[in-house]
């Protein structure tokens, strides 16, 4: 009884709070890193070196006036951000933060909320629901810019999900299981992270991940200069904060999945090499966080460096380049696994 309700409830609260704080400080990190790369300093006034800036942003967004445009569908306008936000947070329940477990008052507590047999399928399914929230948000705004922005964004997300699915399948050919914990265990058994064995799959997953979250260089649907602001033009105050939160939570999610699938989850580098056993002293959770932090830094780095794709170039890359390459990768991997057994 306790282990089915109380422990997961506590874990859910902890993960929810941790992800919320991480999202808030992601905004700060993004502003600082982009500023340093542009030879300026970013927020410096609020708190020491601007560390309290996310709190100021949160307060500002909460006290702003809540405007619903005339002629907008009120119910759907309200539901749009919620539909995008809930899957972004719900998927964190299957991501393994660490493989170790400890016992509290005699109950076994592991450092992931749950381990479903179909972890990857669950993740791909839930992240597709986020697209619905974007379409609803753009449609219910009763205005041309959000409509165009949301349709473009939805088309982009759908087309890059195909290639992402293929790159995930190329990993599954090695693990024979869809469960996230088992995927990390399989990397431990093989001794190599999947990024080394499947470099093409990893690169394709990264590109599709950046495109899924509508981040630069694939951020035409929400670019400030091209489309006013895309699907969240008419949103203000707390609703905009929910969309914003969903976008950054999606970023953290894609990074965590990339770490779990391709970079060994909570494992140290070269987990089976005895000579590097001193790396195992650092707990798995710290390795996981370091790797996720690297991917988040990579997201911000890409944003600061690259110009954005034009929309037709974006769709061309997705359909004419990434999907064939991902399919070829799957076929090649399957053939090699079969004949090199």
């Amino acid at each position: 009884m306790v282990e089915y309700f109380v422990i997961p409830a506590v874990q859910i609260v902890v993960v929810f709070l941790a992800v919320s704080v991480m999202v808030a400080y992601m905004t700060y990190l993004e502003r600082k890193v982009v500023a340093f790369m542009q030879a300026r300093l970013g927020p410096m006034r609020v708190g020491y070196w601007g560390l309290l800036q996310p709190i100021a942003d949160a307060v500002k967004l909460m006290i702003k006036e809540d405007i619903i445009p005339a002629g907008a569908d009120k119910l759907i306008f309200t539901l749009g951000p919620v539909i995008t936000l809930i899957p972004a947070f719900a998927v964190f329940s299957v991501i393994p933060f660490s493989g170790s477990q400890f016992s509290v008052f005699g109950y076994k507590v592991h450092l992931y909320i749950t381990d479903v047999n179909v972890g990857i399928l669950f993740i791909l399914a839930l992240s597709s629901i986020g697209v619905l929230g974007i379409i609803l948000g753009g449609w219910s705004s009763n205005s041309k810019y959000p409509l165009l922005g949301s349709l473009r964004s939805a088309a982009q997300m759908v087309s890059y999900e195909v290639a992402m699915g293929f790159s995930v399948v190329s990993v599954l050919l090695y693990t024979h299981t869809l469960s996230m914990v088992q995927i990390v265990e399989a990397q431990k058994n093989m001794g190599w992270w999947f990024a080394v064995i499947q470099p093409i799959g990893f690169i394709i997953y990264l590109i599709c991940g950046v495109a899924e979250t509508n981040r630069a260089p694939f951020d035409l649907p929400e670019a400030e200069s091209e489309l006013v602001a895309g699907f969240h033009t008419e949103y203000s105050g707390f609703r905009f904060a929910l969309y914003f939160l969903a976008e950054y939570a999606n970023m953290i999610l894609i990074s965590s999945i990339a770490v779990t699938l391709f970079w060994g989850g909570w494992l140290a580098p070269f987990p089976n090499v005895k000579a590097l056993a001193f790396l195992q002293v650092i707990p798995g959770l710290i390795w996981f966080l370091l790797k996720v932090y690297f991917f988040l830094y990579l997201y911000i780095w890409l944003r600061a460096t690259l110009p954005r794709f034009r929309y037709d170039q974006l769709m061309r890359v997705g359909w004419k380049f990434l999907i064939p390459v991902a399919m070829a990768n799957v076929i090649l991997t399957a053939v090699l696994r079969l004949y090199l057994k």
């Binding site: 340093f36 790369m37 542009q38 030879a39 300026r40 300093l41 780095w301 890409l302 460096t305 690259l306």
Partner: peptide
Amino acid sequence: LIKGLIVTFYYQKPSENIT
């Protein structure tokens, strides 16, 4: 792309900033 990423990486020098 990698050359561009290297350039922006080496631009990060907050101690030499003149803001």
